[in-house]
């Protein structure tokens, strides 16, 4: 991941609000980085740009050979399908679908056939310790279990970049530890780059590399 001179701002009724101001950094394949900062510092904006949820306004963002600045709507969707896996604070599970179906959705969007989807979902849920919860809907799962389903979904299409936005923000300490343990295995076991946004010092402290954002720029915490 290579980011050069990335700037981003939002138009408000008063004046443009600069949230990212000329950021430059790089993360090697298999890297594990914690992104910290106060609320409004630009963490989530940076994460959504890296994940292709919104295009960068200026600067260069290259991820896994993709120049995100050059990608249009469908191409960004394809980038998100093939390259990125998201883990949200709110889990982001579709509550009308079972745990297995939630994982299968990501595979369905990538065009996988029904049989292959079911097999892959079963395999991933087993990997996160939820083989016996595959047929349960999110409402019947604990917070930690929901987040593990979300992790399984993020890995469904063998994503090379996993982006987690406050993944333990809604979890108790025990569930948070389980989830972090699971996420931290990703770089080593699956070779993917892992970026976690957090303002929890404990979570940030577990990452080998940390970037601190303040008023759109990197700074020392």
């Amino acid at each position: 991941m290579e980011v050069r001179n990335l700037s981003h701002r939002y138009e408000t009724s008063d004046r443009p609000l600069v949230v990212l101001d000329g950021l430059s950094f790089s993360i090697p394949p298999g890297g594990y980085v914690a992104l910290t900062g106060a609320s409004g510092a630009g963490k989530s904006t940076l994460l959504s740009i890296l994940g292709g949820l919104e295009p960068p306004q200026s600067g260069h963002v290259h991820v896994g050979g993709h120049d995100l600045h050059a990608l249009g709507g469908d191409e960004l969707a394809a980038y998100r399908r093939s390259t990125v896996g998201f883990v949200f604070q709110h889990f982001g599970l579709l509550d009308t679908l079972t745990a297995s179906e939630n994982v299968e959705v990501a595979l369905a969007l990538a065009g996988a056939r029904a049989g292959a989807r079911r097999r892959r979902a079963r395999e991933l849920l087993a990997a996160v310790g939820l083989a016996d919860r595959a047929a349960h809907r999110p409402g019947a799962l604990s917070g930690g279990e929901r987040q593990r389903v979300a992790i399984a979904r993020a890995l469904a299409n063998r994503s090379r970049l996993v982006l987690a936005d406050e993944p333990t923000g809604n979890l108790d300490e025990r569930a948070a530890t389980q989830v972090l343990d699971l996420l931290e295995q990703l770089p080593a076991e699956r070779g993917c780059t892992f970026v976690v946004v957090t303002h929890d010092r404990t979570v940030a402290g577990r990452a080998p590399s940390r970037l601190h954002l303040a008023e759109g720029r990197f700074s020392t915490p």
Binding site: G51, L53, G73, D74, A77, A78, R80, R81, S82, F86, F88, H90, G92, L93, L94, V105, A106, L109, A110, R153, N157
Partner: peptide
């Protein structure tokens, strides 16, 4: 948010 999540995991418009 559900629509956003669908898009985040690769759904097109």
């Amino acid at each position: 948010r559900e629509i956003g999540v669908l898009k985040a995991i690769g759904a097109r418009d």
